[in-house]
């Protein structure tokens, strides 16, 4: 496991050092920008409602796939495209160890971006949302904590599954950007947002399931959430995400053994 930890530290370092975090952070702060404009120019805003109706979907539609892609794809692509992965694969450790390390490191590096995406708008909302007396205040804080924590949880768990997909494409294909765009955005976001039973086959369906439970979006149709008669339970959603992650990682490890370097 020493090998995994070392490479995890390396991948984290690679993604976080210098200006590398700037692009994912810029994407992650877009909801904040939306909110800022909304709060400044909007009339009579109800921040909590605003957050639930607009920011949760924006985070899931936009921040999640693109932050994951911007962080996870270069982790592997930079190594594979120049043959530098050979330095890891010619060490006396099995190949899945460095791969797992890269995956974990990349995933850790998405967390600051997600934190920014979740916390900055929440802080802005809470600043506006001044309750009159202390009792409603504590109550409100609890609700806020639940919503923000829930959204963060969904993003972090989802990026495990989507990140594993990115890793798989990075190992398996020479054009991982196109494949990942297809998988994360078209299959995930667009397909998952279509009304009808087809959305069950998209990973995003399960994310919405989690978001409904955890962020307290209980109505069937809220804001930009697709209408679903029977939203998946938390257990089913977690199983779905876990399955996709595990299968992707196993396939990636298998592909790494098969694919020639360069």
């Amino acid at each position: 496991m020493n090998g995994v930890m070392t490479v995890t530290a390396f991948a984290w370092r690679q993604r976080v050092r210098g200006l590398r975090l700037l692009a994912p952070l810029a994407i992650a702060l877009l909801p904040s920008l939306v909110l800022l404009l909304g709060l400044t120019f909007g009339h009579n805003p109800d921040p909590l409602n605003l957050y639930r109706r607009f920011l949760v979907p924006v985070s899931l539609y936009f921040v999640l796939p693109f932050v994951t892609m911007f962080v996870m794809l270069p982790v592997l692509q930079e190594l594979y495209s120049k043959g530098a992965i050979g330095y890891f694969f010619t060490r006396p450790v099995p190949r899945w160890q460095p791969l797992l390390g890269l995956f974990l490191g990349g995933w850790l590096a998405t967390i600051p971006a997600f934190l920014a995406a979740v916390l900055v708008p929440a802080a802005m909302c809470m600043a506006v949302d001044q309750a009159a007396d202390t009792e409603t205040m504590t109550n409100l804080t609890e609700v806020w904590m639940q919503t923000v924590g829930g959204l963060f949880g969904v993003l972090v768990l989802a990026s495990l599954a989507y990140g594993a997909l990115c890793l798989l494409f990075g190992v398996w294909s020479k054009k991982p950007i196109l494949w990942s765009f297809f998988a994360l955005f078209i299959w995930g976001v667009l397909f998952g947002t279509l009304p009808g039973d087809g959305q069950m086959w998209s990973l995003h369906y399960y994310l919405f399931g989690l978001a409904r439970e955890w962020c307290g979006i209980t109505e069937i149709w809220t804001g930009m959430f697709p209408p679903v008669e029977n939203p998946p339970t938390v257990f089913v959603s977690l199983m779905g995400l876990g399955l996709v992650m595990t299968v992707s990682l196993l396939l990636a490890a298998f592909a790494a053994r098969q694919r020639d370097i360069l």
Partner: peptide
């Protein structure tokens, strides 16, 4: 894509056409 999406979200939120 997202410019359009954001714009319509913001317009919904604020009712400000300049968004």
């Amino acid at each position: 894509l997202f410019g359009s999406a954001m714009a319509s979200i913001l317009y919904n939120m604020t009712d400000n056409v300049d968004m």
